[in-house]
Design a protein around this nucleic acid. Structure first.
Lengths: 328, 328
DNA sequence: CTGAAAGCGCTTACAG
DNA sequence: CTGAAAGCGCTTACAG
């Protein structure tokens, strides 16, 4: 930067001000500096900026696993939105363990990120609010009421309602439901949506049709086996997420039950693998990529002092080949 | 740090030296400093360290998409290994575009990462070597001969050989092959392994059985359709990766061809979704997570001035339910 | 509008 | 073995 200043015949302060747009500078000096900058191919050192200005142009992102189909897509969206403003994401994984998440958060604080985006996780609201005192925070996929935290959440209830309604409209009356990990509000809200869908169609909620899962393929398989072994009759299964649905597909196929001819299956999230399962899953589309973008935009707004609000896209149903009208 | 120095009654220099183990310090001062550190809950500011010492304790990782099942797993391994030594990964996505990769690399250089791990990609060897002059580099999934770059590559040829041999040993003689994106050496090496497997069994290589794909599900589907439409006879398909295999599974099912009863299918990579496809895929296991760890360890070694070498786990076959002995 | 100066929190030769 | 000092490359009050 010193070189730029020299070449342009101004002080480093001026260069800095131009770079940051932090004060108005006479047009001629601006021009001189700008041309010096690109003739020297200068670009400011973010590390020094971080130390001097207290801003690192980096945003911490607490995810659970970078490699999950769900979180992975959100990360892509976040990355894309941040890049537009030259921020870089620092992804850290919590692996669904509170202690790991805490360590990861501490690491982010240490690294002096300018803000943090939290993707769900196991950290308590209190805990999160504590961190939010140190740094701007936006939480995706979870709703937290606190002035310091901006949260964006999916309309899980409505999503599950759409899925269930889709099934009832196709004539299904005996619809099983594979619950997610009820430690998460998502799981609870989705279950609620299912219930609502059943009631809305004037059907009875049958507890025997509701079985536990944990948002994993394995959980979906076990759930289907349990359902089948119990002898309850059902013609469709609504699942708390696509992973469970994919497990369900496998379990059904092993028992020689055809989807959708014998049983319809609907997933939730509309994650990539759902599009290529056999058969491709009808699923509730959350537009996770867009949601990630929205979260990043809210963060960027916060950093600018705006109080921008973003709405997440409404869930909609992606109908593919795993659901079918009930024919008797 | 100034506070720590004061409390411990030493100079900041000494504190720094203890923190970094960069010179021997008398035991009593060490003890004093250490206790001051934890009574003050001090932890050094990495940003300042970065500026002063030229080291940021961060490693750039050029990946293609954080959300790919293949790269995602490698990232997890990298993250885990780096964490052990308090390094943090900076993940940037190249999206398989040379220009994006270059921008991402430049960003990493700007951020003064201490090293960079490159996951395959489209950057030319020359280009990579150029960057390697600025920073230690390890490349995973690609072999580059250069003193400045350490590269770790999978034994793709042997992997494909194992897959093909598995099929021939089960009596298959008409084995189709779905090629990957031949811009990548992987695709070429895997194809070579297939050829070797066919020859090894004393069979003829039939060009009609070899069809193009691009490592995607879509590509796998199209390939199968083409094969089927062409009327060539085959009883098994070996695929260049799991995504293609998953696409193949779907295409076969749509034509009412049962796997493995009518046709056996074998994948490559043994990525998570392969374990829960319908049916679960037999696949060549690359232990990508371990490979990520290995790459990170090599990087860490480099940083310490060691010339540690790591060998990637040998590919092995995971036999599941998509392959079966040919019965006539 | 613009400079000179101090400072961000460390590290690292340089002396001793 | 250990301090004092300079410096890493910026930003930001403080004056003018």
């Amino acid at each position: 930067m010193a070189m730029v200043a020299e070449v342009a015949g101004v002080s480093p302060s001026t260069v800095s001000r131009i770079l940051n747009g932090t004060a108005r500078v006479s047009p001629d000096k601006t021009a001189a500096v700008l041309s010096a900058i690109d003739s020297l191919e200068f670009s400011p050192n973010p590390v020094a900026r971080g130390l001097a200005g207290g801003r690192t142009a980096s945003i911490g992102v607490l995810t659970q696993t970078v490699s999950s189909p769900f979180y992975g897509e959100a990360l892509l969206g976040i990355e894309a939105a941040l890049r537009e403003e030259s921020y870089i994401p620092l992804f850290v994984s919590g692996h669904w363990m509170e202690s790991t998440e805490r360590m990861a958060m501490d690491e982010l604080m240490l690294r002096r990120v300018d803000g943090v985006i939290v993707l769900a996780g196991r950290l308590s609201d209190r805990m999160l609010q504590g961190y939010a005192k140190q740094v701007p925070m936006v939480v995706l996929g979870r709703s937290i009421n606190s002035s310091r935290v901006r949260s964006l959440s999916f309309d899980n209830r409505n999503g599950a309602l759409l899925a269930t309604r889709h099934l009832t409209e196709m004539g299904h009356q005996r619809i099983a439901y594979i619950v997610g990990d009820t430690d998460h509000d998502d799981a609870v809200e989705r279950l609620e949506g299912y219930r609502e869908g059943i009631r809305e169609a004037g059907l009875q909620i049958d507890p025997e049709l509701i079985t536990n899962g944990d948002f994993t393929e394995q959980g979906g398989m076990l759930a289907v086996n349990r359902l089948l072994d119990s002898g309850v009759r059902f013609t469709a299964i609504a699942c708390s997420n696509d992973q469970a649905a994919i497990g369900a597909l496998l379990a059904l196929s092993r028992r020689n039950i055809r989807v959708p001819d014998d049983v319809s299956v609907v997933g939730f999230d509309d994650v990539m693998p759902a599009r290529y399962s056999t058969p491709p899953l009808s699923s509730v589309q959350l537009s996770i990529y867009e949601a990630g973008k929205a979260a990043a935009r809210v963060m960027l707004g916060l950093l600018r002092g705006e109080n921008r609000s973003e709405v997440l896209p409404e869930p909609r149903l992606a109908i593919r080949e795993s659901t079918q009208r009930l024919h008797r």
